[in-house]
């Protein structure tokens, strides 16, 4: 058995975290991407830059400020304490919040790009066909931009699985609560337990490869309908 119980726990925790974060990001990221693609507001560029920030920030910077903000003396920490929720750092919820921010651009960007490629015409055509905004989203935008949403989900999931710096800052290394795969690997290496480190690391490599392969295969088969059919 190449995995210890702690390893299995870390794998399960990682999958749970990534699934939660991906689901939440699709829900919150879609309206952001929509607004970025179709709004004419001057704030569009500012919001776009803020959303993209985690792409280039060192995870430790993000983690550090999140730790302060979510901590007992931070503004968000004060709020969560006021609501009787305690503080978020070193909890699973804290990890979710941190991962939401960290993986946000990986979900928003593909959806944003897909919507930009579609342009306003499909939504306009749907509106002239008596279709309300929700109807249009589910029956026109979502199927037409499906590769974008698929890419967003996969990247959001994979990126959350792979995060390390933010987890370490905000979650620490509590088995069953915040001890995810990447932290567990780090721990094995520190303990010179290379066998276990290999097992987890190779699993990650295979997982990432399979995910990307599946994504590219799926997007290929759905490629044609993403275009509007005409120039």
């Amino acid at each position: 058995m190449p995995f210890s119980d702690a390893d299995l726990q870390a794998i399960w925790l990682t999958l749970k975290l990534a699934a939660t974060v991906t689901a939440l990001l699709l829900i919150f990221g879609t309206p952001i991407a929509w607004w970025l693609a179709y709004s004419r507001s001057h704030w569009r560029r500012v919001v776009h830059a803020v959303v993209a920030l985690p792409l280039i920030l060192p995870p430790s910077v993000l983690g550090f400020y999140l730790l302060l903000a979510l901590g007992p003396k931070g503004p968000i920490g004060a709020l969560t304490q006021g609501l009787g929720l305690g503080t978020l750092p070193f909890t699973f919820a804290g990890l979710v919040v941190a991962s939401l921010l960290y993986s946000l651009p990986f979900v928003v960007q593909p959806i944003h790009n897909a919507l930009l490629t579609l342009g306003p015409r499909p939504a306009e055509a749907a509106a002239t066909l008596h279709a309300g905004p929700w109807d249009t989203f589910w029956h026109v935008i979502l199927p037409l931009a499906r590769p974008g949403f698929l890419t967003a989900a996969v990247l959001g999931f994979a990126h959350t699985v792979g995060e390390f710096g933010v987890v370490l800052m905000i979650g620490g290394n509590i088995p069953g609560v915040t001890q995810v795969i990447s932290v567990q690997i780090y721990q094995h290496v520190e303990a010179l337990d290379y066998t276990r480190a290999h097992a987890l690391s190779l699993t990650m490599i295979v997982f990432s490869f399979v995910v990307l392969l599946a994504l590219y295969s799926l997007n290929r088969t759905t490629d044609a309908p993403t275009r509007m059919g005409e120039r």
Binding site: R121, A126, T128, H130, H139, M228
Partner: peptide, 28 residues
């Protein structure tokens, strides 16, 4: 727009590319 009783034909056809011609008509 979606509450106005109108039909609109755009300059370049704006058919939904994920639907067949029949499904486009059924949509309406």
């Amino acid at each position: 727009v979606h509450q106005r009783s109108l039909g609109f034909v755009f300059q370049e056809a704006s058919l939904f590319a994920h639907l067949t011609a029949r499904q486009n008509l059924v949509f309406a």
